[in-house]
């Protein structure tokens, strides 16, 4: 049984593999971003559900960079994926966009600043539901870094 405390204690570990990708914040890259992360995770022999989870979470974080961080502009999205020896995958998705003034509110289910464009406000909720932990670091005007933590079961 994974409790919140036990998960927190294991969120770091010796890194045994890593990739770094950077891409312009074009919506066409959403599919590529999630496929690259899925390909990185494939060597862990993940279940179909685990792959679907991480793909969906990455898609949410990258979409946030495109729709919110770099709204009406094109910036660079930096993705850093690390595999730790305890089968933990850490996906860091970073932008240098507008930042989030109130992270706690932004993480609330159904909260959105862009309802006019049919944003559901479920991005962070999806990330949290499909990963073991999600960390958000943000400063207004400087950018946001979202880190997704997901353990892959031994099979």
């Amino acid at each position: 049984m994974k409790t919140k405390e036990s998960v927190k204690n294991k969120l770091s570990g010796k890194v045994i593999n890593e990739i770094k990708v950077k891409m312009p914040s074009l919506s066409v890259n959403e599919g590529m971003a999630r496929s690259v992360v899925a390909a990185f995770c494939a060597r862990l022999d993940p279940s179909a559900a685990e792959i679907a989870d991480i793909k969906c979470a990455v898609s949410e974080a990258v979409t946030n960079c495109i729709v919110h961080a770099y709204k009406d502009t094109i910036g660079v999205i930096y993705i850093n994926v690390k595999l730790c020896e305890n089968r933990l995958v850490r996906v860091e998705i970073k932008d240098r966009g507008c930042g989030i003034e109130d992270v706690k509110t932004a993480r609330q289910p159904l909260f959105t600043t862009d309802a006019a464009n049919e944003r559901s406000g479920m991005g962070f909720t999806v990330m949290e539901s499909f990963c073991d932990a999600v960390r958000v670091r943000s400063a207004a005007g400087k950018g946001t870094t979202v880190t997704l933590f997901k353990f892959f079961e031994e099979r």
């Binding site: 049919e118 944003r119 999806v126």
Partner: peptide, 13 residues
């Protein structure tokens, strides 16, 4: 084959 929360926006809209 794949849907994220943008699909929810599409359905709700």
């Amino acid at each position: 084959e794949f849907m994220d929360s943008s699909g929810l926006g599409l359905i709700m809209g």
